[in-house]
């Protein structure tokens, strides 16, 4: 069964007098438990595709299926519910809610889901420990380094065991050591929990970690490579 299936997606943005094709009749299928890297030069369409898969943006045409549910026809509220229950996000930056501590940030999604306080706390502490942030749970984002913040974001993305995690340039603001650590963490979570990962990046070091590399250009897939992770 496929975790993600995109069929003939098109998305055009208007920039000044020019129409930019962000997605150009793009189709892709990602299996459950897949670990996929979307790679393209800037403006190649990887973020647009990621946003469309996550229900953050709607394509002009085409179909998007997540866990055999067509999502491009869902309402805002239904998309919010889908993201809440099935999808975890890791963004490039500004990932955390600044007024919440690390633990509260991790608990946030579960809290919106309605999970009981004790269960939330237990799960949040366990996953923070898993991402190597034990002892930092009461720190606010402003009291943590970029790498630590990104780890909190990863913890938040995985804590409620979504079937799909979408990460957009997750290492863009990290040094190489922290970046490698984060990718190891993704790989571990993918292997241990069979969570599907779709990561958009143009970082060569990240690409090297990922078994399936999808190269995009001008909104189209130009190469789809199965590779052996480094």
């Amino acid at each position: 069964m496929s975790a993600v299936r995109c069929i003939d997606l098109c998305k055009t943005y208007r920039q000044g007098d020019e129409d930019i094709k962000a997605l150009d009749h793009l189709s892709i299928e990602i299996d459950n438990g897949g670990f996929v890297c979307l790679s393209s030069p800037s403006g190649g369409g990887k973020t647009t595709l990621l946003n469309a898969i996550g229900g953050l943006d709607k394509p002009d045409s085409g179909e998007i299926w997540i866990d055999e549910q067509r999502i491009d026809i869902l309402s805002k509220g239904e998309l919010a519910e889908l993201r809440l229950r099935k999808i975890g996000f890791v963004f490039q930056a500004y990932n955390l809610i600044p007024v919440l501590t690390a633990r509260e940030n991790v608990e946030f999604v579960m809290q919106v889901q309605g999970v009981a306080a004790s269960e939330r706390r237990e799960k949040a502490l366990a996953v923070l420990d898993e991402v190597g942030l034990a002892g930092l749970e009461d720190r606010r984002p402003s009291e943590m380094s970029g790498g630590q913040q990104q780890r909190v974001a990863v913890a938040r993305a995985v804590v409620s065991r979504p079937t799909l995690i979408l990460a957009d340039e997750p290492t863009a603001n990290l040094d190489s050591k922290t970046s490698d650590g984060l990718m190891d963490l993704f790989a571990e979570l993918n292997e241990n929990h069979s969570t599907t990962f779709v990561i958009a990046t143009h970082d060569q070091r990240v690409m090297a970690h990922i078994p399936r590399l999808v190269k995009m250009l001008d909104g189209r897939i130009v190469d789809d490579i199965q590779q052996t992770a480094a």
């Binding site: 953050l56 805002k76 993201r83 809440l84 229950r85 963004f91 809610i97 946030f108 999604v109 919106v112």
Partner: peptide
């Protein structure tokens, strides 16, 4: 951005 993040995480409008 924070509001966008919360919406992205599944908080309803």
């Amino acid at each position: 951005r924070e509001i966008g993040l919360m919406l992205a995480l599944g908080m309803r409008p």
